[in-house]
Design a protein around this nucleic acid. Sequence first.
DNA 1: CCAGAGGTACGACGTCCACCGTACCTCAAA
DNA 2: TTTGAGGTACGGTGGACGTCGTACCTCTGG
Lengths: 119, 119
Amino acid sequence: MSYHDLEVMRVTGEFPCPPMEDVELGTVLSALADPLRRAVVVQLANGEHGAERACASFALPVAKSTRTHHWRVLREAGLIRQRDAGNGTFVRLRRDEIARHFPGLLELIVTLDPGTVEA
Amino acid sequence: MSYHDLEVMRVTGEFPCPPMEDVELGTVLSALADPLRRAVVVQLANGEHGAERACASFALPVAKSTRTHHWRVLREAGLIRQRDAGNGTFVRLRRDEIARHFPGLLELIVTLDPGTVEA
DNA sequence: CCAGAGGTACGACGTCCACCGTACCTCAAA
DNA sequence: TTTGAGGTACGGTGGACGTCGTACCTCTGG
């Protein structure tokens, strides 16, 4: 993590995440290949536009450290933004940016995902 | 490979591949996450409907055994069928079945793939 | 002030993946 | 009949992934 990223995070609580034009399609597809991560994205996509949701509200059936890992993967794939509020963190879908750079992707995942994994 | 599969292959030259309803979305997304495999799928999708194409015509920049590996991954992800003609093998996209079970997926990949990898 | 909830960082572990070389097979062409 | 092109199977290697436990941090509520 760069010095600038650290400073941004100290002030705003925003985790660093890549600009959308740097994200490759393969990275996004890899991120969405995991059923847990895909379930998270689907739930965010089905939520209110621009809505922020507490990470703790997802109840993923894995250990805390594994959750952290999945949040990072989703961040680095450009799919979510994450904000640290001290005692809790919040995520929101980068809906508009995704729609601009990967038009149709989000809608496809939402309609295609069986949603068998409760999360 | 089961006894039945072996018999089918001996007679028809068809490699075994799973029924479409057994293929999970995550498997398909993983298969498409690799740039080489995605390039193959895009080229097949852009070809004639139902067209069969020689595996050797793809000129993938990897060793023979690695190519074989990629064909298997694509087969097991339900994306292609492969036929052994003795001295050469041929692949064809399972276009209609994909469209039926994952509607919109193929079109999305074709439009979203940068196609930077020449293959 | 202190306990607890939420979360990250780090290190570890087992598995899978992309890749390769080698051995071997099959068919076609010389 | 022999050579070469195309291809699979197998074994191995290095790196990435999903998972976890532990240590440590921050804010809130008693």
